[in-house]
Design a protein around this nucleic acid. Sequence first.
DNA 1: GTGTGTGAAGGGTTTCACAGCA
DNA 2: TGCTGTGAAACCCTTCACACAC
Lengths: 223, 223
Amino acid sequence: MTPKPRKHRTPKIKVSDSTILRLSKYYRALVYWIERDVKTVSSDMLSQHIGGTPAQVRKDLSYFGAFGRRGLGYNVADLKGNIAHIMGLEKDWRVALVGVGNIGRAMLEYDPFRTQGFNILICFDSDPMKIGKTFHGVKVVNENYLEREIRENNIDIAIIAVPVFAAQSAADNCVAGGIKCIFNFAPINLNVPSDIFVKDENMAMEIESLSFALTNPTLARGN
Amino acid sequence: MTPKPRKHRTPKIKVSDSTILRLSKYYRALVYWIERDVKTVSSDMLSQHIGGTPAQVRKDLSYFGAFGRRGLGYNVADLKGNIAHIMGLEKDWRVALVGVGNIGRAMLEYDPFRTQGFNILICFDSDPMKIGKTFHGVKVVNENYLEREIRENNIDIAIIAVPVFAAQSAADNCVAGGIKCIFNFAPINLNVPSDIFVKDENMAMEIESLSFALTNPTLARGN
DNA sequence: GTGTGTGAAGGGTTTCACAGCA
DNA sequence: TGCTGTGAAACCCTTCACACAC
């Protein structure tokens, strides 16, 4: 009768990376509809909004629970809350930025970051001209102190935005400092223990895939 | 006897996006070895360098040709040349940047871009404070002229780095101007004709997948 | 009737294992 | 012998289709 609060379940199997990325998209779509006072959505609406199929939406969600009501669809606010909880988006994360170059500074200024609980608390660089200065309210510390500062500041996520030649040792120091999660912008395969989660953001790769798509219009597929 | 020049073949089937992204990695690895005067590599070396399996390396390459020599491996310079040709990396691409905000400026300053033949020739913005100015040697033009300028400058690739609310209309104007390839940083699903290749770079999604990985250490998988 | 939740089918990518060639 | 190239097997993800709940 009354809409029961739904608890999400934990899948027995590891869930695919594409499912997780789609959950992010669903989340953004739900925020969009909340702003517009839409109360209920169907898997069909969700799929159209993000560019997918209704079956896939239902499958993705079904890994974590039964959030909808048959014949009615999903309550927008509830589903948003459930996804936020599944993905840990209500939490605040303590983030460190290693390398205050162009990409690093773009991350500092990137708003969706801050507003979603990803707080860059400390920056590192090896350039004496930058050490001691403040960028966007965050102090730049000598990269030599990476391990200690990561540990003492209880950092959850390290963003590595240094040149290739410095990336592996930066990662090593982060790991030594106890980091469990790395967001890596350097176009190199970081060697880390298997319990460390590394997410690569390799702009060069993405760009080159555009070149491939233009060169081979008949071979390339979407994303 | 003499190492014959190998021509690459065109696959009969569409090749997966992950294969293309790995070709980029192989390419980077080969450049690395050329700098170090390594003449020959095996699929095993390649796979270790980028973090994969030897079988996958061979399979990926086999879609495009037989570039190795049984019992010997691959000639580094030849393979680099072949991959460059497959991916169109010897070409120069005419790129337009739509939106000169933080991300846009980071793209302007991003070196791997320029050095690989991706030339940002023109920028667009709607901010009167920016129009007419020059960033990194590139002039900023009023976004209203997007369609015309894209056409007249024969732009191959448009980078969309505007806020969400402006992204769809920017894409529409690019398409009207004849663009075939879009690199989209706005966290929104762009609606474009099916012959337009769109590559999404959604930082928020990537970041949220880190949050998921930290929240569910046992469920998350690599990249 | 409507739209979800899900086992089963289908399709695509990765891994295996070995033939074939240097 | 050593390592590639490649069909076949295994695996994973997506799509289908329908029972079921509202």
